[in-house]
Computed example of a mutant assay.
Amino acid sequence: MTGPAQQAREALGGRLREIRKDAALTARALAAMHGWPRSKMSKIELGHQTPTESDVVTWCRSCRANDQIPDLIASLRNLEAAYLEIKRMRLPVRQRQSIKWEAETKLMRWYEPWVIPGLLQTPAYVETLMGRVLDFYHGTRTDLEAMMAARLERQHVLYRGDHRFHFVIAEQALHTTVGDNDIMIGQLDRLLVAMSLPRVALGVIPADTEYLVPQSNFCMFDRRKVLVETISAELTITQPREIVLYEKTFHTLTEQAVIGAAARALISAELEKRLG
């Protein structure tokens, strides 16, 4: 059965095969250089066997591709952990893992196109949003209370240490109704309060902004990792070349967002509309 981990293993093997071919080495020749069985070469390149870090380093050095080592090692380390099934990622233990990551991060950069970022959500917003997610994936809300507690505990990082937070949201996140009007009124008011926090920068991308870059929600932890949520999995991005792309994307989105009084005006306009 082909799953995300197997696909990632095949992609890694394909990159190693390309490196070998670019160096004009046959699989037999590379194997002979290091006393590897010929079958090992084919299994790695086809994604049937996971190479060790030592294999990757030796492979790249033999092919004069030392510059590829950091990315390939990151891919290898992330091979089994990069794709976390959505059913597990929503558990309280996953929320508590986020507490650790956030505590270790100096600069967190977070983009959301549809909903309010988790660290800025009110308890009522959290309860409704997580309840909907649990209904969709599990059909039960058994873990809701523990998940809520962990999510709200995560928010303490906004007031501790020397962390900095840069949130960029699409204007649609202001309009997406989570729960009911009363919940949204409390949530929009919470955003206005959060904007005054000294460690928080919040930008809103107006709805009529030109499309410039591919978009999905993502959260950057310094330059160490990026988390991206899809329908079926949470991706943990650690390859340096990919992190550079997310930095480029966040920079572009930041330039498109309005901040300060202009952002406050968009939030206040939606709040006033809901207040009637």
Rank of each mutant, 00 (worst) to 15 (best):
E127L: 04
V126N: 03
S98I: 07
A81V: 08
R90E: 01
A81P: 00
Q68T: 09
P113I: 10
W114P: 00
R132A: 11
P113R: 02
Y111A: 04
I116M: 09
P92D: 00
N66V: 14
W110P: 00
D71A: 12
L107K: 09
C63W: 11
V133Y: 07
D67E: 15
C63K: 11
N66Q: 15
Y111V: 05
R77N: 13
A81R: 11
C60G: 12
W101R: 14
I73Y: 06
V133N: 03
Q121K: 01
Q121V: 03
I69K: 10
R109T: 11
R77E: 10
D71V: 08
A103K: 15
Q95C: 02
L107T: 12
V133W: 02
K106M: 07
E104S: 08
R88F: 01
L120H: 03
R88D: 02
P117R: 06
L72A: 09
I86L: 01
T122L: 01
V133M: 09
I86T: 04
L107N: 14
L76W: 07
E112M: 12
I86A: 02
R90H: 09
L76D: 04
P123K: 05
Q95P: 07
N78C: 13
C60Q: 13
M108G: 02
A103H: 12
R109A: 06
M89E: 05
R94A: 13
W114N: 08
F136C: 04
E127A: 14
W101S: 13
N78S: 15
I69W: 10
M130D: 06
L120Y: 02
Y125C: 00
V133L: 08
D71F: 09
A82C: 13
A103T: 13
K100M: 05
S75C: 03
E127Y: 04
R64T: 09
E80S: 10
E104I: 01
M130V: 05
W114E: 12
I86D: 00
P70V: 11
Y125V: 03
E127S: 11
L76G: 05
Q97G: 15
V93C: 03
D71H: 06
E102S: 09
A74I: 04
